[in-house]
């Protein structure tokens, strides 16, 4: 069995250069950081999108401002014009923070009192995920007509992502799938 050298090995003395700060490099570095920091700041200012709920969008002063909103897709409202690639649908308000997304989406769609918002999307193929009770995360602007003009559509179907508890069908042969 090979024994381990537990002690720190006696290395040859390393050539360690002493000296103060190398100012010209430091200044160059700071200039570079400032330049890139400015770039990031500028990008942040122009690229920032408030991520808000439908309720917040409609109660605040957001008309004409680019924002990101989240809502539950109401399946029966989806209208799609494939020739002109225009999609219209409604979403219902859901809270921005939610624990059980699938349940929140279900409740939002079935709650007649939940705030609803019409969404209009141009020049986009209807996403496969655009269906009832999907969560839509939309980037766009609220028009003066009360319609949300979305330029970017991200959809999430919780049942796809979250393990679906087996319904009673596993236990009960009479229950539908």
């Amino acid at each position: 069995m090979t024994h381990i050298a537990w002690e720190k090995p006696e290395n040859a003395p390393e050539e360690v250069v002493q000296g103060g700060i190398q100012w010209k490099y430091l200044i160059g570095l700071i200039a570079l950081f400032i330049g890139i920091g400015y770039l990031i700041l500028q990008g942040t200012v122009s690229g920032a999108r408030y991520f808000i709920s439908v309720d917040e969008l409609l109660s605040g002063d957001y008309v004409g401002k680019t924002v990101r909103i989240s809502g539950a897709v109401i399946g029966e409202s989806i209208r799609y014009d494939p020739q002109n690639l225009i999609i219209d649908f409604n979403i219902a308000n859901i809270p921005t923070e939610t624990k059980d997304l699938a349940r929140t989406l279900y409740e939002a769609v079935h709650d007649p009192n939940a705030t609803r918002l019409a969404v209009h999307v141009r020049n986009q193929v209807k996403p496969d995920l655009l269906q009832n009770e999907a969560q839509a995360i939309l980037t766009g602007k609220l028009g003066a007509d009360g319609v949300f003009y979305a330029t970017e559509v991200l959809l999430k179907c919780p049942s796809r992502y979250e393990e679906v508890a087996p319904n009673q069908a596993i236990a009960d042969p009479m229950a539908g799938k």
């Binding site: 990008g43 942040t44 690229g47 920032a48 991520f51 990101r68």
Partner: peptide, 24 residues
């Protein structure tokens, strides 16, 4: 960074879209 920072400091989430990355 931006979403977490804005959430903590401003109480509202700010997200940066593709434009930000294409600019920076």
């Amino acid at each position: 960074g931006a979403p977490i920072f804005s959430e903590l400091v401003m109480g509202t989430t700010i997200t940066l879209g593709k434009d930000y990355f294409l600019q920076v």
